[in-house]
């Protein structure tokens, strides 16, 4: 496989509703998700997640076929799923700037 032809997003498990970025996506890049081409509104870094389908607040986020938390906001297909729109179902995560629940500047 040639490096340049690798898709920037991978599906880890058929039950997942997110895709994982394996190659840096830039704002404005066209990305193919579920037979649809979406223009990414922001940069997405390697290791980050985007929605495979439109998701609503309260939806469980599935990765590796297992729940990894819940949405707290709606997110459009192809958009970033991260700490600003999802939360832990166990213990809240902290960051350097927010020691309880993080809100991004997006």
């Amino acid at each position: 496989m040639n490096k340049t032809t690798i898709a920037p997003l991978i599906l880890l498990h058929p039950d997942d509703n997110i895709l994982v970025c394996v190659r840096q996506i830039r704002a404005g890049d066209a990305i193919d998700i579920e037979q649809e081409t979406i223009i990414s509104p922001i940069d997405i870094g390697v290791g980050h997640k985007v929605a495979r389908f439109a998701l609503a607040a309260g939806d469980k986020v599935c990765r590796y076929g297992a729940p990894i938390g819940s949405m707290i906001e709606t997110v459009a297909k192809g958009h970033h799923v991260h700490m600003h729109n999802m939360k832990s179902d166990y213990i809240p995560s902290h960051t350097r700037t927010r020691q309880t629940q993080y809100r991004s500047e997006e």
Binding site: A66, S88, I91, S93, H94
Partner: peptide
């Protein structure tokens, strides 16, 4: 960890795309 007030989740984990303790756990 609940009593400590923090899960085993560092700021750098989030910078690298992880969001929750259970996501980190599964990995």
């Amino acid at each position: 960890y609940r009593v400590m007030g923090f899960g085993s989740f560092a700021p750098g984990n989030a910078d690298g795309g992880l969001t929750t303790l259970e996501e980190k756990s599964m990995g």
